[in-house]
Amino acid sequence: MSGKSTIYAFLGVGLLTTLLFVVMPVIFSISLSFYRMESFVGVPEWVGLQNYVSVLSDFEFWRALASGTIYAVLSIVLQLVLGIGLALILNQSFVGRGLVRGVSILPYLLPTVIVVLTFKWMVDGSVGIITELLDSFGLPDVRWFETPSAAMMSNVLVSVWMWTPFVTTCFLAGLQTVPDSLYEAARVDGTNAWQRFIHVTLPMLKPILTVVILLRGIWMFNKFDVIWLMTKGGPLGSTENLAVMSYRRAFAQFDVGGGAAVATLSFLILSFAIFLYFRAFPLETD
């Protein structure tokens, strides 16, 4: 094969896959949002923007948007703070560093359902280890899923537990690219450890940080599995985000068009947020 046809062959596979598994479902889903449809069998009925009107005038949509945003922001901030802190610790030299680095990534490698089940067992009212521990310290029981704020915190907690290692790994990789001489120059300049973090580490890792926040932002905003497995959006819909709402409308309430409208709106909101994000933090190019 000549150079050109090789390029087209490789591009073709990628384009075809993207077309089949990304572009077409998106278009299909967007088009569904203009129809009334009660299931995937039967004939959809064109209703124009009526699904959007109904969704946007539904307070559940705004609640899900707010709750999903709170969930995403809280869990990203905590993941970043903990992830960066862990990366800084794991970048020091100490005995058994390799082992600790290996173990620290474990939560990220586990399937979500395992992590969620483990968490549920740990806080189980009769046999959970956390319940036991709280008991033995004489602390009151925590009702992990019963109030809206407790359920939200539980979701955030599990998400932070699972995805902090991703931030740690990215940051740790970045830290190893910062030349030691920059830290030494900063020491000669008279910085303390905190100033070195602010003036050397953070600016050097800004490109990584930009990408990590973006990726985590997309993933947390669209998060379905953790919330569904933990709370199913409850209690009383208080932890439901747009992904869960879209699913619930389409598959539990048999309003496929409404579900598709929620998904489409979610897509638009996220796209707009990413647009604003890139305006604020342009990716540096050399």
């Binding site: 030349p179 001489s181 920059l182 030494e184 120059a185 900063a186 020491r187 000669v188 300049d189 008279g190 910085t191 003036h199 050397v200 600016p203």
Partner: peptide, 16 residues
């Protein structure tokens, strides 16, 4: 280092 009143120039310049 900061209390020694020295200045250092590094091989790879080490500019921020």
């Amino acid at each position: 280092p900061k209390d020694r009143n020295i200045a250092m120039v590094f091989q790879n310049y080490a500019l921020y």
